Simulated assay, not measured.
Amino acid sequence: MSPHHDYDAVRKDIAALLHMPDYDDGSAGPVFVRLAWHSSGTYDAETDTGGSNGAGMRYEAEGGDPANAGLQYGRAFLEPIKKKYPWITYSDLWTLAGVVAIKEMGGPDIPWQGGRTDLVDDSKVPPRGRLPDGAQGADHLRFIFYRMGFNDQEIVALTGGHNLGRCHGDRSGFEGPWVTNPTRFSNSFFKLLLQLDWQPRKMRSGNTQFVYVDPDAEEGEEPLMMLPTDMALASDPAFAPWVHRYAEDKELFFDHFSKVFAKLIELGIQRDAQGNVTNTDGSLGGYVSAPKKSDTPTGPPRARL
């Protein structure tokens, strides 16, 4: 990682990019958070494969995973920044975009260091199936997150990212936002999960989600939703205490979320005493920045989450 790399300038340009009136709820922030999350959540601690280093989503083997449907928009939104700063790696750009988006949407500061390299080919792209399936329950969550090295408390804290964004029926088979303000980071997800009367609803996709229909809602107003994995947090004996604590204490949630998101985006990253990444790829090694890709979003039509 060279000292001339101006990450602060990149941060400012990412922040300026967030406001998008014609996309979802008017912000690219939630899709940037999901991009950082999914690019990191492929890590397997036992084999030390996957994770944010490499930006494997540039290749069909990972980018085409149905779990990543919709993320082609987030990747394409960031292409003007890649063009302006061709030295930055995609793996740094995607993780930094998530960190900046969380802060700009009212969330906590999240420690971030640059220096990730981009894969030079798809030989190290992790296999599909490592990301969460929202249609499952507590056992599935543990299977996915324990593989990465997270514990029960960290699983609940990370799921608090559902304070942001929404599901899309044409991507995941689920539909709607979790909270009333999906572009503002808060602990509302946990409060609503515990306070509202969630009723199962079968979707056209065949999935079952849980919805709350406000009796005082105006005609055509979109109901809030929860995934089966969300509901599992409130009923599981080990997960539920953390749901209650985060619903009651926003500062505690922000503190724990900051720590666990920082851990997520560093999974598999090896650094020396100066903080320089020592992971390499192929024969090139060092800080390898992949060439800029297309500004046009292309990707899988469906996703699990």
Results as ranks from 00 to 15, higher is better:
residue 1 M to F: 08
residue 236 D to L: 02
residue 57 M to F: 15
residue 301 P to I: 02
residue 22 D to Q: 11
residue 281 D to K: 01
residue 139 D to L: 07
residue 50 G to F: 09
residue 153 Q to H: 13
residue 157 A to S: 13
residue 231 M to C: 02
residue 279 N to Q: 12
residue 279 N to E: 09
residue 234 A to K: 15
residue 256 H to Q: 14
residue 138 A to W: 06
residue 5 H to R: 11
residue 277 V to L: 10
residue 192 L to I: 14
residue 144 I to P: 01
residue 189 F to T: 07
residue 147 R to T: 06
residue 208 T to S: 05
residue 173 G to A: 02
residue 98 G to R: 06
residue 98 G to I: 11
residue 43 Y to E: 02
residue 19 H to D: 15
residue 303 A to D: 07
residue 234 A to N: 10
residue 70 G to D: 10
residue 141 L to P: 02
residue 183 T to F: 04
residue 169 G to N: 13
residue 276 N to L: 13
residue 38 H to D: 15
residue 125 V to F: 05
residue 2 S to E: 12
residue 150 F to Y: 15
residue 94 W to F: 13
residue 156 V to G: 09
residue 283 S to G: 02
residue 242 W to Y: 15
residue 279 N to K: 03
residue 148 M to C: 09
residue 48 D to Q: 15
residue 198 W to N: 02
residue 67 A to D: 09
residue 163 N to S: 13
residue 263 K to M: 09
residue 39 S to V: 03
residue 49 T to W: 00
residue 28 A to T: 10
residue 291 P to M: 03
residue 44 D to P: 00
residue 280 T to F: 02
residue 145 F to I: 00
residue 136 Q to F: 05
residue 159 T to E: 11
residue 73 Y to G: 00
residue 129 G to F: 12
residue 79 E to S: 12
residue 64 G to Q: 12
residue 216 D to K: 13
residue 200 P to Q: 07
residue 16 A to G: 15
residue 43 Y to I: 01
residue 148 M to N: 11
residue 39 S to Q: 06
residue 162 H to Q: 03
residue 24 D to Y: 08
residue 110 I to T: 04
residue 59 Y to I: 05
residue 210 F to K: 05
residue 13 D to K: 08
residue 73 Y to S: 07
residue 136 Q to W: 00
residue 85 Y to V: 05
residue 161 G to Y: 01
residue 10 V to R: 00
residue 128 R to E: 03
residue 257 F to R: 05
residue 35 L to V: 12
residue 262 A to S: 15
residue 266 E to F: 01
residue 87 W to K: 06
residue 284 L to Y: 13
residue 74 G to L: 06
residue 298 T to P: 00
residue 140 H to L: 08
residue 139 D to F: 00
residue 101 A to K: 00
residue 148 M to T: 07
residue 58 R to F: 04
residue 24 D to K: 08
residue 14 I to F: 06
residue 299 G to K: 14
residue 96 L to W: 08
residue 254 F to V: 06
residue 178 W to Y: 14
residue 214 D to E: 04
residue 290 A to V: 02
